Amino acid sequence: MTLTRTSATFAPPVMEARRWLEGVQFTDDRPLINVSQAAPVDPPPLALRRAMADFAVAEDAAHLYGPVLGNAELRSELARQIGAHYEATVDAAQTAITSGCNQAFAAVISAVTDQGDEVIVPTPWYFNHKMWLDMSGVRTIDLPTGPDLLPDPEMARALITSRTRAIALVTPNNPGGVEYPAALVRAFFDLAQELGIYLLVDETYRDFDSRSGTPHNLFQQPGWEETLVHLYSFSKAYRLTGHRVGAIATGSSLLSEVEKFLDTVAICPGQIGQFAAMWGMQNLQQWLAGERDEILDRRASIAENMPKLESKGWRLLGLGAYFAYLEHPFQIPSDLLARRLVAEAGILLLPGTMFMPEGDPDGKRQVRIAFANLDRAGIGQLFDRLQGLSF
């Protein structure tokens, strides 16, 4: 087969990890603990499902094409809620709805880069971002982070060349879990604005940020829409992962270019998913607050259980939203460790090698735990199993 950019791109990590389960038997007294994927396993709340069902039956429009950039009423509601969340003014024309947040990233990258261009991405990176850059022929410029997993704007400045088109950040971070301080996000915005490049800020997990108040003031900056590209997902907030509903907020001129990509790939976002996102924003804010409280409680449980592992040489590098990012104490690399954990501990997690450049020594010492689908008892069992490991 001829080598293409797609064939040269690594396999989807979550799908690869699922293959490690083949042929492995798990017992009732030690079932599989799956902390590999950051996605709700429960369906949307019943009230939302009933509303979606009624919409599907009663509205012919539920089954038809809609506007490429999303339905007008959803874009207006999104703009209103972004404005309220970030204490700023956002217009509906500065928003777009996409078939998931991954598509939002892909559409923006396609609109702002050409083959051979560069995008700066902190490591460890979100693997789907790296995959799309590779498949697009865009060079990923790795920005190493320190022990706190926070990227340094001045290190980024040193990496910028004439081919740099954007810097991509994820906060709260996937895979690291860390919440980027407002001053840090602002420093990256100022850098991007100064140099005339885009700053992509993926805030898929913003609804589970542990901080109160506005997480940053980028939307308040004059001319924000010429620099900032804000990405969001309704999937985590309202358990709509199967319906693929994401969003972009940026300048309307860039959205005109994004529209070309979206029209070619999907024509429009799904109508039922858009309805669900709209209904959720208008009716489920109290429910979502409860979901946030539950995630924050599970985060607290991770912190409470960490002494069990710290005594064995483990180290917590990042914690927040859906993720805990750890350094393991063993001499074997994390990709081999992760495979062995399936059969020997009944744990499926992702190794740091899936979030780092090939051969990076830090990735071989790190693992990601996606804890959002474990309650406190499950988290306790996970840490008990990890504590008992010996390699």
Score class of each variant (00 low, 15 high):
residue 211 R to F: 08
residue 72 A to Y: 07
residue 99 S to M: 11
residue 41 V to C: 11
residue 375 D to C: 01
residue 295 I to M: 03
residue 371 F to E: 03
residue 182 A to K: 09
residue 62 A to I: 09
residue 228 L to M: 01
residue 103 Q to I: 09
residue 387 Q to V: 05
residue 172 P to D: 06
residue 386 L to A: 04
residue 216 H to K: 02
residue 385 R to D: 10
residue 62 A to T: 06
residue 268 C to F: 08
residue 335 D to A: 09
residue 357 P to Q: 15
residue 82 I to T: 05
residue 359 G to C: 08
residue 351 P to K: 01
residue 158 A to N: 11
residue 185 V to D: 02
residue 146 G to R: 06
residue 342 V to H: 07
residue 385 R to L: 13
residue 228 L to T: 00
residue 352 G to H: 09
residue 358 E to M: 15
residue 250 T to R: 05
residue 192 A to E: 01
residue 189 F to P: 04
residue 51 A to I: 04
residue 127 F to S: 13
residue 359 G to R: 13
residue 379 I to N: 10
residue 273 G to S: 12
residue 13 P to Y: 14
residue 312 K to E: 09
residue 108 V to F: 07
residue 176 G to F: 00
residue 173 N to P: 00
residue 292 R to Y: 01
residue 202 D to G: 03
residue 216 H to Q: 05
residue 73 E to S: 14
residue 352 G to W: 04
residue 89 T to I: 06
residue 171 T to S: 14
residue 223 G to L: 02
residue 20 W to G: 05
residue 168 A to E: 06
residue 313 G to D: 04
residue 349 L to S: 03
residue 249 A to D: 00
residue 105 F to E: 13
residue 22 E to V: 13
residue 65 Y to H: 13
residue 126 Y to H: 06
residue 182 A to P: 00
residue 36 S to N: 08
residue 332 I to H: 06
residue 142 D to H: 15
residue 229 V to L: 03
residue 250 T to Y: 05
residue 52 M to V: 07
residue 35 V to H: 05
residue 111 A to R: 10
residue 281 M to A: 04
residue 335 D to M: 03
residue 279 W to K: 03
residue 73 E to W: 15
residue 81 Q to S: 06
residue 31 P to K: 12
residue 71 N to R: 15
residue 205 Y to V: 04
residue 285 Q to T: 05
residue 166 A to C: 11
residue 230 H to L: 09
residue 319 L to S: 03
residue 167 I to D: 00
residue 79 A to T: 00
residue 256 S to I: 12
residue 123 T to A: 12
residue 383 F to G: 07
residue 182 A to V: 00
residue 140 T to H: 14
residue 241 T to V: 12
residue 179 E to P: 02
residue 40 P to N: 13
residue 67 P to N: 08
residue 320 G to S: 07
residue 330 F to Q: 06
residue 39 A to M: 14
residue 122 P to F: 02
residue 140 T to P: 07
residue 371 F to G: 02
residue 160 I to T: 05
residue 59 E to R: 15
residue 323 F to V: 01
residue 186 R to Y: 09
residue 359 G to T: 08
residue 364 K to E: 13
residue 292 R to W: 01
residue 2 T to P: 15
residue 314 W to H: 03
residue 63 H to L: 04
residue 111 A to D: 05
residue 52 M to G: 08
residue 342 V to Q: 06
residue 116 G to V: 11
residue 257 E to F: 15
residue 70 G to C: 08
residue 208 F to Q: 01
residue 107 A to Q: 14
residue 54 D to F: 12
residue 258 V to F: 14
residue 285 Q to E: 09
residue 379 I to H: 10
residue 43 P to Q: 13
residue 329 P to F: 14
residue 20 W to F: 07
residue 90 V to L: 03
